[in-house]
Amino acid sequence: MSDDEVKKFLYVNRKAPYGTIYAQESLEVVLIGAAFDQDVAMAFLDDGVFQLTKGQDTKGTGLKNFSPTYRALGDYEVTKLYVEQESLDERGLTLDDLQDIQYEDEDDDYAEKPSIIVVSRDQMASLMAEQDVILSF
């Protein structure tokens, strides 16, 4: 491939934000990866949908609450956060339970737009099939 070819990267997040380190170390990859100017998206499914919930409070656990970082992803040009509808449903969650995450669309006079895109399980499968690189956490 040529040096300037852009690949489609999908970071797949399947685990709850706390309890294991996967979600936090996944975010570290995404933030570093932003410097490489690839076509990046994140997917949230299974317990991974809990990563985006609002009102996370880690006081008393000694763990760092890294959930505000998701709202900063737009500044890193990570603007596509695909959330699987069935995973939300199975956990009694709706879009209202998730943080309001937005990005400024530089192609549209920096209008603020939602980063979260809710997709069905079938759509998620198609999305994965379109990727060049999938990193699963």
């Binding site: 491939m1 990859v29 570093i32 410097a35 990193l135």
Partner: peptide
């Protein structure tokens, strides 16, 4: 080395395979 090596690997390889 740094996480950049992971992204670079993904860009350069034909297939990236995760064992987890």
């Amino acid at each position: 080395s740094g996480l950049g090596q992971l992204i670079e690997m993904g860009i350069e390889a034909d297939r990236t395979i995760t064992f987890g």
